[in-house]
Design a protein around this nucleic acid. Structure first.
Lengths: 210, 210
DNA sequence: TCAAAAACTTAATGACAATTCAATTTTTGG
DNA sequence: CCAAAAATTGAATTGTCATTAAGTTTTTGA
């Protein structure tokens, strides 16, 4: 009766279950994560009950234990999901242009898109301290990697003369603050939409560096 | 035995207790709020126990009930405190300069100062949904008033030609996001300090509007 | 079609944390 | 110094979840 949470291992050994079944399981896991992200976004991690998440899916809270060992594991996966999404942007940005200013504009606009279109990015705005110590360390390490990537773009821009001599650390905090805050006010049914928002943020936040 | 929470009413009838005693009580209330703000900032509202708050003050959690009727009341007062602090900035800014750009720079720098020097401002970054419905409505109404005040400065700047034709709503969200995010990363013992941070934010966020 | 696997359910369990209550200690002001 | 008020405490209460256990229903694939 022990459930193995193959999905969590990502590199699933997969020899035990048919790919069809495994794929279905993964889809369901994704649905749970999406419901969880929405709930966490609205009420915070501690303020959200498993009931809240299950309700959005039309099941009982205990059903979730078939997919995740506990509540913290759900939060952990939300963070991994978000980090995975934005982390790829760093490489994309390098391919997108050679100009640091253009790279930064791209990164901001795409990060905003990830935050709004798929709510996938919003976990970055969640409280990290709710994670178990080991998970917390891992997520913080990854998040730092992302922040370092952004700072590198800023530094490159300063070196190339595209940006004035700003403090990269502070600059990145301002950018991430503006973006992460989106999770607090954005309404998918509202009048503001991703492309407009991304462009506006890029204009303001990058424009202020020249 | 019923405790009256005179402090909460602010317009205390005060005829029952000596001013000396009342003043002491207010000081203690302030201490509790400060401890609570720090705890909430680190663990979030639901993630913080009354024990956490009491511990910082060297008392038992039940002692807090002498000053606040319940946990939610503490959060409520934190929000009121923060809003009170930043709300006065709107008037200060008008007195400070006639130029919208200068007003906005002032507002950003001062808001940053309030966030970092006294942690008083950080409650604005707390989750509003944890408040009781009536309190939530009041706080949101006040917060909206602050946001409107900021938008008015942006609009004035556009009209005066100091700013380009940006979307005031988005612009204010970016500014408040950057500032509120400070609560998540700022370390009072770190290398970044208020004046530098305030100036850097003002440069980047206002500079991007011209 | 049918047995095994998977998905989900209902009914406990147990912990924790907010709150209440009934003292006890400390402070205040005459 | 002393009685009343204020501050605090320890013990008891309670409700809310997360989690576990033990079925039941649904899906899968041969």
């Amino acid at each position: 009766m022990t459930i193995q949470f193959l999905g969590a291992a990502m590199g699933a050994t997969g020899s035990e279950v048919s790919p069809r079944v495994e794929a279905k399981r993964q889809r369901r896991r994704a649905e749970i994560l999406e419901a969880a992200i929405q709930a966490f976004r609205e009420k915070g991690y501690h303020g959200t009950t498993l009931e809240d998440i299950a309700e959005r899916l039309g099941v009982r809270n205990t059903a979730l234990y078939h997919y995740f060992p506990d509540k913290e594991a759900i939060l952990y996966e939300c963070h991994r999901e978000s980090l995975g999404q934005v982390m790829t942007l760093l490489d994309d940005a390098r391919r997108h242009s050679d100009s640091p200013a253009e790279q930064l504009r791209y990164l901001i606009a795409e990060h905003v898109r990830v935050m709004t279109e798929t709510l996938r990015g919003s976990s970055l705005a969640f409280e990290v301290h709710s994670l178990a110590p080991e998970h917390q360390a891992e997520i913080i390490r990854e998040r730092d990697r992302y922040e370092r990537g952004l700072r590198k773009v800023i530094t490159a821009g300063i070196d190339s003369g595209e940006f004035r001599d700003v403090n990269p650390k502070i600059t990145v905090f301002a950018i991430l603050g503006a973006i992460n805050w989106i999770a607090r006010w954005f309404d998918p049914d509202g009048t503001i939409h991703s492309p407009e928002l991304g462009a506006a943020f890029a204009d303001q936040l990058v424009g202020g560096l020249t």
